[in-house]
Amino acid sequence: MSGLAPVPDAEHESVPIGSNDDVVRARQLVRALAQQCKLSLVDQTKLVTAASELARNTLVYGGGGVMRVGLVRRDGRVGVTAVFEDSGPGIPDVDQALTDGWTSGGGLGLGLSGARRLVDDFTLQTEVGGGTQVAVTKWAR
């Protein structure tokens, strides 16, 4: 995957992802920002669902990590970016990991591929042994 992850505004917030509680907290924070930047209800739901998938991945596959989330602006548009980072084992085969139904764990294998479909921008950086960073953005229309 190429491209740098967009970095949220200076006033971005960070949430540790170390427990199931944290996944819930991450969802709530993303929802609050999605409402603040006036995403449609469907777009809010898509973004929060994607965040839920990615936060769980960070917890389950990455062994925990952090989510940074904030408003972003580009070309007169406003959106919400959420970046999920872990220092877990990394993903050896990114194409495979982005395939529907493929899972290295006990899940359905829809987390990563599904999350990508639910957002406007998606970037994934990973290194075997060096962790994974996934950034997603949804823009207000």
Binding site: L41, V42, T49, E53, D100, L108, L110, G114, R117, L118
Partner: peptide, 14 residues
Amino acid sequence: MRPAVAITLVELGL
């Protein structure tokens, strides 16, 4: 089920 939830689930692949 809310409409937005149905739309999201189908797009998610479920």
